[in-house]
Design a protein around this nucleic acid. Sequence first.
DNA 1: TAGATTGTTAATCGATTAACAATC
DNA 2: TAGATTGTTAATCGATTAACAATC
Lengths: 233, 233
Amino acid sequence: MTSRNVSKTVVKRLPVYLRILDNLILRDVEIVSSRELSMESGFSAEQIRKDLAYFGAFGTRGTGYNTAYLRDKLLKIIGLDQKTKVIVIGAGHLGTALTRYNAVKNLYIDIVAVFDRDRRVVGQQIGHIRVLPFEKAPEIIRKHQVKVALITVPETSAQKVVDEITRHGITAILNFAPAKLHVPEDVHIQNSDLTIDLQSLIYYSTAEKERLSRLQKENEESKTQKQKILKID
Amino acid sequence: MTSRNVSKTVVKRLPVYLRILDNLILRDVEIVSSRELSMESGFSAEQIRKDLAYFGAFGTRGTGYNTAYLRDKLLKIIGLDQKTKVIVIGAGHLGTALTRYNAVKNLYIDIVAVFDRDRRVVGQQIGHIRVLPFEKAPEIIRKHQVKVALITVPETSAQKVVDEITRHGITAILNFAPAKLHVPEDVHIQNSDLTIDLQSLIYYSTAEKERLSRLQKENEESKTQKQKILKID
DNA sequence: TAGATTGTTAATCGATTAACAATC
DNA sequence: TAGATTGTTAATCGATTAACAATC
């Protein structure tokens, strides 16, 4: 184990391993090899062994990994060994979906509160959680020492929301608004942009080669035309 | 321009450029440099120039890129030059959020239909789109020649849904169910797992170094203890 | 012509895979 | 002991960055 900073790509795989272990434990499987984890996850066995080895030697040579033991270690590595407190800002459909899902399934996450600016939404229940007015956010963040926030508000208000909550102690944000938000240096922000995911998927929905060779031909034909467009436009 | 297959990381950035261009055009900006695109996107200017150069020479040396021209090219590259037809399977909160967002904003996407198995949901309206029973999916897919599907059903039914829709012509799937789904070779599937995004974010919500050095100490202390646990468990 | 910025080649960096010694 | 699988080092691959000639 080296204690150099672990790369993002590795961190992104850890929760995948965690979920697989959860499922294995549910099925009373006690030992799992990197090869089996590879089949479940789609990552190579070498990569999995290397990922885990960043943090310690958790396996047994000749045998594999004890599922309960490895899960315990992964929880500590990711920081999920205590239930992590999370707030959700924005009680629209997306905010509701996220709240419902994470509140129902036990995913080591504790949704402390959901906030919205819209008076018509405030007071509604999402499962057992009541939607609070956004002005209450600072108080709740401080009281429960919440560090993590999910933002599902429209892009027009996203920056204001981020400014406000980072001021009161939020250090990690998962942002669903399609905007590049500015945060203080010590705050970690991660964007999840479903439209971009969808558009990049569409790239693969029709034959890539044909589309690109058609484009190439078009490019060649229009080398002269290009200048015209640039002038006219 | 080479016509080798373009890597996934490049394809993932193209819709980001597209969105920035849309905004610039809305603000009547006609020319943009790779440096400016870099500031808006967070990707390096060199990387942006290189990404675009995979597909052709769209800029003007000494000047930059014509925004309208580059957008036009990007639409053709991604395959969004005709509105792409998409279906949504699962009319829960997530499915509703995706449908609403993509139907309202013009994102070059045409949501043809939303399906659900639950009779109580069928018939409801999401914007101007009516929720149809899932049995209608094959007919609609064939009639409109839909290639792209978003799946927001529970993990227990996700595989069945995928099997059914791929049989009728779907070739690209964005899956929100937390499961590794099996698809025919010619079908492209991309997973969007919001829980995994959230858990990997949590890794960064508390001081990484301290947590990991605590873990390291624990590992050293329990080298002997480890065997015990493995035996007992 | 001088200044600016692209498009492209070369250098660097990082991540994945291969290989194998350690060891259960 | 023989067979299996980890943990780790070395080799490969791919992606990003640096540098600069081409050219508007």
